[in-house]
């Protein structure tokens, strides 16, 4: 079904790529910025995690759409695993963001959670995935579960874009690129961008490895539990 040699090649390329990115992220010299200092290196980890979550949301919604179109249960496994790995990266991104901002933007205050638009949006996306997992747990028949979970996933995907419009009107953001703040490319040194963009590719590649591995494991488990003769 899948070309195993090509899969291994792509996987190993990503692993090497990610290793190089990690070394560069910690070892390369970066310009000294007030307050941020060496925490600026978190840029290579925190921001790519958001990109990964976004990619995962798209992959999950796409496969949910395919469940409804074709009724193929494999698509349901793909949608679920993309959501799970995406939620994992979302939690990591949220945590790195909270810790990073506590000791830089909000240093000297007791604020941990500060209703930043992006923080609020990702916590809502995580809530939606939480509800998605709970809903799956309440459905027994695999075919019915595939269909109904897909409906919820797609329905949630139609409401979340509103957050992009509604939330920034209510809360202020310190993130670069938000309303009134300088764009990302203006305040970031070229050498940091040299590592940052490969880091995004590396993280999305890492997501792809975790996601495909989980899908393959789930497919094997499925086959074993549904055909006891095998």
């Amino acid at each position: 079904m899948i070309n195993l040699r090509r899969y291994t090649l792509v996987r190993n390329t990503i692993l090497v790529w990610m290793t190089v990115v990690l070394f560069a992220a910690f070892l390369l010299n970066i310009p000294k910025i007030n307050i941020l200092e060496h925490t600026a290196r978190n840029l290579y980890f925190h921001v790519p995690m958001w990109f990964t979550l976004m990619a995962a949301v798209f992959v999950s919604a796409y496969h949910s759409f395919q469940v409804l179109r074709s009724g193929d249960i494999v698509r349901d496994i793909r949608a679920l695993q993309a959501a799970r790995v995406g939620a994992f990266f979302g939690i990591l991104g949220l945590l790195t963001g909270i810790i990073w901002s506590k000791f830089t933007w909000y240093v000297g205050t007791d604020v941990w959670w500060n209703f930043d638009p992006r923080q609020s949006m990702v916590s809502l996306q995580l809530l939606i995935y939480g509800a998605y997992f709970v809903l799956r747990g309440a459905l027994d028949d695999p075919n019915k579960r595939a269909r109904i979970a897909a409906v919820y996933n797609l329905f949630a995907a139609t409401t979340t874009p509103f957050l992009l419009y509604v939330i920034p009107r209510q809360m202020e953001s310190l993130h670069p690129g938000a309303e009134g703040n300088p764009a990302f490319s203006e305040i970031t040194h070229p050498i940091m961008r040299l590592i940052f963009y490969p880091a995004i590719i590396g993280f999305i590649g890492l997501f792809w490895i975790m996601y495909t591995q989980r899908v393959r494991t789930a497919l094997l488990k499925n086959r074993v539990s549904h055909d006891p003769e095998l």
Partner: peptide, 30 residues
């Protein structure tokens, strides 16, 4: 729509609020 979804679930009781609230945040804020 969500009421139709939970009618299909085996454990119907407290499911609706958990499914509904994350979706309604944009509406609630406005």
């Amino acid at each position: 729509l969500l009421a139709a979804i939970i009618a299909r679930a085996s454990n119907k009781g407290p499911l609706l609020p958990a499914l509904l609230f994350p979706l309604l945040i944009p509406l609630l804020l406005s």
